[in-house]
Design a protein around this nucleic acid. Sequence first.
RNA 1: GCCCCGAUAGCUCAGCUGGAUAGAGCGUCCGCCUCCUAAGCGGAAGGCCAGAGGUUCGAAUCCUCUUCGGGGCGCCA
Length: 581
Amino acid sequence: MRAQINHFLQKAISEFSGKYTSVVNYDPQLERTRNPKHGDFTTNIAMRLSKELRKQPREIAESILECFPSSDLIEEIQIAGPGFINFKLSSVALQKELMEILKSGFNYGRSNFGSDQRVLVEYVSANPTGPLHVGHGRHAAYGASLANLLKATGHNVQEEYYVNDAGRQMDILTVSVWLRYLQQNGVEIDFPENAYQGEYIIDIAKQLEAEPSKWFFSKNKPNLKEVLADTKTDKEKRLDNIVAEAKKYLGIDRFNKLLHKGLDSVLSDIKSDLSEFGVEPDLWYSEASLSDKGAIERALNLLDQNNILYKRDGATWFKAKKFGDEKDRVVIRENGVTTYFASDIAYHLEKRERGFDLLLDVLGADHHGYVARVRAGLEALGEPPESLEVSLVQFVTLYRGTEKVQMSTRSGKYVTLRELRNEVGNDAARFFYVSRANEQHLDFDLELAKEKSNDNPVYYVQYAHARISSLEKKLDQESAEYKEIDTNNLSLLTEENERNLLVLLSRYPEVIQLATTNRAPQNLVYYLRDLAAEFHSYYNAHKMLVENEQLRKARISLALGTQQVLYNGLTLLGVKAPDTM
RNA sequence: GCCCCGAUAGCUCAGCUGGAUAGAGCGUCCGCCUCCUAAGCGGAAGGCCAGAGGUUCGAAUCCUCUUCGGGGCGCCA
């Protein structure tokens, strides 16, 4: 719709500007109006050309309109205010659009706007050291919705979860399980406060009891007393000592086997949690696999060949500053172990090598400092810096009514995504998570999300869909002739409510495109609320199933078109469109 | 100290690639079910868009500074 009129306008401008060569390719910037008094679309082109052409905007507008092709899509064109050109859509145009919705069904609003650009959306990527919490839920909902939007607009999308299954945190996970297991078996242990505290560790340890042979435990007790009692050394160092003791006691093979017990357990919990939440990454990319196949070494070698690495204080540094970062960064520590950052350069290089044009990372706002550094890494390896795009997601604060729910990751006392979903339901969770701009802190009110009332925006939108389903059900009880749908008399849709609804429906494809370009699913959320409101308003003001057959069928068509758009939009957000409520 | 994000109705927030009288929900107040789902609708009140400059025909939107919040600045991940 918009594209069509934009096309006319461009033609008119280009014809008009034959006399003024400088303005041939002006983008008309056709926009929807806010105020219905100004028609449906508006352009400010005349005002923008005014200075350059040294003419009054209104005069320019007149000239452009002389070149504007006549079309049955436009009912009225007006020059208004300081020089806006306002277009009012004809009822024919609106009817055509409704027919388009009914014909295209789920494809309505989809486009090839992205022209098949290959986009890799990486999101959540939470460390596999414990269950997902409510913050990760926001990442999941945002990332998945964004991926859906990109797909709907013709991008070739891969969704990925990067599993940080390497490094110290895995060792800590392993000893956390081990120590809990030992406790269960009568070994007296003062569990370190900086090991993982959560209940789930105890659960994993309990599952070990079912192992056929107790390969990770033997009669001779580990020599932990000394290590644990050593309160003089730093507690992090002490934890490392415990790890060392565990490796010594178990041997590296058994230690790794135990590590995988813990990892698999946590990861399978994360996978099922996300899956139930409607989030299914195409690939779970293992960090450990990167070093296994030598990708990190290879990336570092490439950097070295380009003379971008140097040694200092026993460590190997990357000249990040040269590429816009605020300081250089370590890639190989003094102890010979590569840093997380090194893995990340390797991973992102590898993404590019897999052929992705755009690497879209959804990260926590606390990672913002890290963006410049990874981008620097890519650039140093000859990749365009703009191939990495990052969407930062701010934190979530849970409220129960007005009361803040206290959480602390350290003590393992936090509300998990699973708990949240069980309490408020998947639909409310998905909807609430993406209602807020990703860069805004989100206050998530559990009470409101649970509420089955008009206060709850999820139900409000779903209710509009269900109401229409209910109409259909009514139709089904009637004669074949009565329930037959035909769109031959859409011109009978002359009520103000009907026009408003038709106009709003025709905006849907533009909203999808806008939400995608802005990386802003909330644009769609607010649109769906508006659409639901418009429908509820119409529904209350006018009866759908009227005696007059032609009018009835026209109204049913409108209702079905509305239902289709609600369905399409909710589906992109991962929210169900129920038939009954 | 440096960097990122935010500040819009009593509350929670949209709007931010500049447009014409600044929007929604909640809350407050007044109405609407012998009628297709009242999980709904109609109406009223409520604003110096944090402050000050600047750019522009035009600024909530862009730039600068200030104030107040949140977060980040590791040879952690």
